[in-house]
Design a protein around this nucleic acid. Sequence first.
DNA 1: GCCAACGTTGGC
DNA 2: GCCAACGTTGGC
Length: 154
Amino acid sequence: MAFWLFKTEPDVFSIDDLCKFGKADWEGVRNYQARNFLRDQVAINDQVFIYHSSCKIPAIAGIATVIKDAHPDPTQFDHSSPYFDAKASKTDPRWYQVSVKFDQKFIKPITLSQLKSDSNLDDFQLTKKGSRLSIIPLDEGHWNYIIDTYLIKF
DNA sequence: GCCAACGTTGGC
DNA sequence: GCCAACGTTGGC
């Protein structure tokens, strides 16, 4: 089992949407490095931090679990989709998605500001300046550290 | 294969 | 809305 952070703009798709629908196809990833992670490494049962970006308080908002590994992202073939890609074909798909299920929404999101000020997370890609990757791997140590340190326990 | 121009991301 | 950082494109 591996650990990941998936970015999403909450105005487009939020942890609340994932909670409401229960599961989702993680569509619309249009960056080759992120695509390669999705296609080659993300596996069923992997754990995923759902991260809200481009919003008032950027933060890890909850957790999801991978329920289906890579398959072609159908929005690349859909002319009416903002994710349409004229250079992709069904015989030679360019973009992939995985499917995730809702696991939990944090009562208190773990903010980027918190993570950035933690020197134990200096080598976490998310906290690095100019990090734009939307699918970020993290090791089990980082995953557990973040949960143990920042998740409010009840 | 280099690199300038352009486009996008995303924090602030 | 600004802009730094990064990714992509395309001429040469």
